[in-house]
Design a binder for these strands. Structure first.
Length: 717
DNA sequence: CACGCGCGATTTTTT
DNA sequence: ATCGCGCGTG
């Protein structure tokens, strides 16, 4: 292969990045600036031109999907399959390290990965055992605490309790939780990273081995790395390594789960001879769209100065549509979708993106109504579905009998007479003898063959043993198939009303097919490998790919994707930016970045829509249009007037107002009011009747407040 | 022990 | 509006 095929398709800055030598690199890649291209060509360059062996580099991506895509593109570029290439997510790579060197960090070779759902179950269980009041700590709070500390690289004894009793309790809980995991050889997501970091930090020989091996470390979506991931990079790069990181501070949208875009600055401090390359030419959007995005993001205080540009023409103006309510918003979008398709375009070129999942409902209903095929991204992932987790719990218990979490999950599912009380007995025995629940159950059966629960428990034990016996020599997919058949799960789901049960059973057979073509990883057994796969990978549904569908997704899941026609729906203050992010400037800036991400998804045509009235969680909300709309220069936009439907809706609304607002609360939603302390504001939402009525007022200078009408002394303006 | 009602919460998502 | 979970009852 010659240099030209790698270099020719690149612009100047891209080329600079791809051909860089012997320097830590920082690539700031704006939206649509060819980031993935740079990464893949960089890898091709290293292998083909610098003759680097493929196993001397590591490439880290944010999602499994991105990893797969990168691998494919590299293989395409090099025209040879690249096996044993270390490309994956931080978690996937950490997992690989741990399987290889489990014994170095006191892990059982057969350790199992637990997902957040499993983790939460364990936490709830433990809270009960320790008599921790759920009023004092919500299980999710403790889960969040533990994961946060792990993401920061902290073990319980590294956290300072500061005489803070609440904090001290949380630390103690973290310690107990970890104890449970260690005893059961369970590793949660954050633990994968933390353990791997410790593995390398505490084993100098191993570390230097891997430092020599991975001379080149490439990291994508660098702005979204958390503390432990950054530390992992630092460790692996060592003194001689050459890190090559690619990111965009403007697209950092995961601060709320520990991502630190500050790592971009930190990196430059830690590697003083860093060469920075900025990719600012955008190949995706029209100039109007790009300029709108630039204008919005320019309102952020904290960002690296840069401005995307394009050679593309201005294109269409950005359309802004104000609807009366969410249904009219949806109806408007349906009309535009129809136009698009009638013009001979594909539905799959259309994306409907929104801030929160709850918004998808109305859109879905409208799409169904018009018989428009659509696909929703996100929502619950395949391997997270209840029926899949149930089936896998059987599989796990059959082959890893000390897996207490799985035992608890399925011991009475379907119900077989081993309820809370029976389970308690088992738990107590397990606790006393320091054994697993499985062993405790076996002990009970051996000890007393006359007890009431004996027959039930022993039937369960026989079932699991039978599963083991009959599937031991089978292929993984046959194992799963047979275990499902013996479990009674199918019969259980059949009883569920509606289509739900039917779907569940379908999913079970899909699980079997998923296992059929599954190829394991070299470092572990196929069973371990499959279970790890189930925990670490979402299980992308590629099913509907052939069908021409409108795409629905949140703005978060839209990152990295692009569509000719994009609708950003629900552009209302309170929804986007989200209410919970409006008060804190840093959070507001993150919302603005999210808006920037949204806008830059569009290639040709962008619609921004909002509703004056929106029913959310059963109550009507009246919000002003999103402040982000005001940040787009007027000359780039085209405000579309609503049509005849206006009158219909106004009468409808007037009726609602009348019936809801009695003479005692002479306010209307949208009414401007004056408050002694907070000044002027607009009534957004109401709740309750007459004397108990409360209103939510969005004050111009104080944000939104809930006030009881009878005390608030609001003056009408 | 199983089932059913009621209460509370309900941004964003990967791994 | 809806869904899941926890507690109380049959």
């Amino acid at each position: 292969m010659d240099v030209t095929s790698i270099i020719d398709p690149l612009n100047e800055p891209q080329r600079k990045a791809v051909t860089a030598s012997s320097k830590p690199m920082l690539i700031i890649a704006g939206a649509g600036s060819g980031k993935t291209r740079v990464l893949t060509h960089r890898i091709a360059w290293l292998i083909k031109i610098e003759n680097l062996s493929p196993h001397n580099l590591m490439a880290v991506t944010f999602t499994n999907k991105a990893a797969k895509e990168m691998k494919d593109r590299i293989e395409n570029l090099l025209e040879i399959p690249v096996n044993n290439l270390w490309i994956g997510t931080f978690h996937g790579i950490a997992h690989r390290f741990l399987r290889r060197h489990a014994e170095n960090v006191n892990l059982d070779k057969n350790f199992q990965i637990i997902d957040s759902d499993d983790q939460l179950r364990i936490i709830k269980r433990l809270m009960k055992n320790l008599n921790i009041d759920t009023d004092q700590f919500a299980p999710k709070e403790l889960q969040y605490f533990i994961n946060k500390k792990k993401d920061e690289g902290l073990r319980p004894n590294e956290i300072d309790g500061k005489n803070d009793s609440e904090l001290t309790q949380q630390i103690a809980f973290y310690r107990s939780y970890q104890d449970i995991c260690d005893k059961g050889s369970l590793v949660d997501f954050a633990e994968l990273l933390l353990r791997t970091h410790e593995l390398l930090a505490h084993n100098p020989d191993l570390l230097s081995h891997y430092q020599r091996k991975f001379k080149h470390l490439l990291i994508d979506e660098f702005q979204d790395t958390n503390v432990i991931q950054y530390a992992f990079m630092r460790l692996l790069v060592g003194q001689q390594g050459l890190p090559f990181v690619v990111g965009d501070d403007d697209q950092s949208i995961y601060r709320w789960r520990g991502a630190k875009m500050e790592h971009i600055d930190q990196y430059q401090k830690d590697y003083p001879n860093t060469e920075i390359v900025k990719l600012e030419q955008n190949y995706r959007s029209t100039a109007n769209i790009l300029n709108a995005a630039n204008a919005v993001i320019n309102n952020n205080e904290i960002r690296m100065p840069k401005e995307l540009w394009t050679e593309d023409s201005s294109g269409e103006l950005i359309k802004i549509f104000s609807a009366f309510n969410e249904r009219e918003e949806a109806a408007f979008i349906m009309g535009k979708i129809e136009d698009w398709v009638n013009d001979g375009n594909k539905r799959s070129e259309i994306a409907l993106i929104y801030r929160s999942n709850a918004q998808s409902r109305v859109l879905e209903e409208a799409l169904i109504n018009k018989s428009v095929p659509y696909k929703i991204y996100g929502g619950l992932r395949f391997f997270e579905r209840l029926e899949i987790k149930d089936a896998l719990a059987y599989l796990r218990l059959v082959y890893f009998q000390n897996d207490d979490a799985s035992f608890e999950r399925i011991v009475n599912k379907p119900t077989r007479g081993i309820g809370a009380k029976g389970l308690d007995t088992i738990r107590n025995i397990a606790k006393d003898k320091q054994t697993s629940l499985w062993e405790a159950a076996n002990d009970i059966c051996k000890a007393d063959k006359t007890g009431k629960s004996y027959s039930k428990l022993s039937a369960f034990i026989s079932l699991i043993n039978k599963m083991k016996r009959e599937t031991d020599t089978l292929e993984i997919s046959e194992k799963i198939d047979h275990i499902i058949n013996l479990s009674g799960l199918v019969e259980l789901y059949e009883k569920e009303k509606g289509e739900k049960g039917y779907t569940r059973i379908e999913n079970l057979s899909e699980l079997v097919s998923a296992a059929k073509g599954f190829e394991g990883d070299e470092d572990m057994s196929i069973l371990d490998s499959f279970l790890a796969h189930a925990a670490l990978e979402a299980g992308d549904e590629q099913a509907n790919e052939w069908e021409d569908c409108v795409q629905l997704m949140t703005m978060h899941s839209a990152k990295g994707l692009e569509y000719p026609l994009v609708f950003m729906c629900g552009m209302e203050d309170g929804l986007f930016p989200h209410q919970r992010s409006m008060a804190n400037p840093k959070n507001l800036e993150e919302e603005r970045r999210l808006c920037y991400v949204g806008i830059t998804r569009a290639k040709k045509l962008l619609y921004l829509t909002y509703a004056e009235q929106r029913r959310l969680h059963g109550i009507d909300n009246f919000s002003p249009s999103s402040r982000f709309l005001d940040e787009i220069p007027k000359e780039l936009t085209d405000e579309i007037r609503s049509n005849y439907q206006k009158t219909t809706y106004i009468t409808q609304n007037a009726k609602n107002y009348k019936s809801r607002f009695t003479s005692e609360a002479p306010f209307q939603l949208g009414q401007r009011v004056l408050h002694k302390k907070f000044g002027e504001g607009t009534i957004m939402t109401y709740e309750g009747e007459s004397a108990h009525a409360r209103v939510q007022v969005n004050f111009d200078n104080f944000g939104s407040k809930w006030l009881v009408v009878s005390y608030a002394n609001l003056d009408l303006i």
